[in-house]
């Protein structure tokens, strides 16, 4: 049953690429897609910018993320069903620079928005913040 539900759930769009300069990519289920304005983002996707590239993404809960050059982020989990109380937004950042403007998930459920890095886990309680990771 769970297996049967997996594909539909895995493919749900949770956000869209809104800005791109230079060469940026979205990896969806192992497939590398050139990021363009309008490229959909799904849970599990890996977002990458090239050495001279930037990218900005807006998610369904109004979270806005933007990445500087040579950045890699994975969207580990995204749950946005306020009616059911399902709220979670966790990402892992391997390298690069990022700005996050938190959205409805952080407003409704403090600590539900996290960024995992090698040197610590960042929990966000409704704010804008910047993260730099040098691996």
């Amino acid at each position: 049953m769970l297996m049967a539900l997996w594909p539909a759930w895995a493919q749900e769009t949770i956000g869209f690429v809104k800005t791109v300069t230079g060469k940026a990519a979205v990896t969806d289920a192992g497939k590398l897609i050139d990021a363009q304005v309008g490229t959909p983002i799904k849970m599990g996707n890996i977002l990458k910018t090239g050495p001279q590239a930037t990218m900005g993404v807006t998610f369904k809960d109004n979270t806005v993320m933007s990445f500087g050059p040579d950045t890699e982020i994975t969207v580990d989990e995204y749950l946005y069903a306020p009616g059911k109380g399902d709220l979670k937004f966790s990402t892992s950042m391997a390298k690069g620079s990022m700005q996050v403007v938190s959205g409805v998930i952080a407003k409704l459920k403090p600590q539900a928005v996290t960024v995992k890095t090698q040197g610590g886990l960042i929990g966000c309680r409704g704010t804008r913040f910047l993260v730099k990771v040098e691996p």
């Binding site: 809104k18 800005t19 300069t21 930037t54 990218m55 900005g56 993404v57 807006t58 109004n62 806005v64 933007s66 990445f67 500087g68 050059p69 950045t71 620079s97 990022m98 700005q99 403007v101 959205g103 910047l130 730099k132």
Partner: peptide, 14 residues
């Protein structure tokens, strides 16, 4: 220096 490009890439806020 560290975040100028990431900040400049921010899409308009909803």
């Amino acid at each position: 220096r560290d975040f100028g490009e990431a900040i400049a890439a921010q899409p308009p806020l909803p």
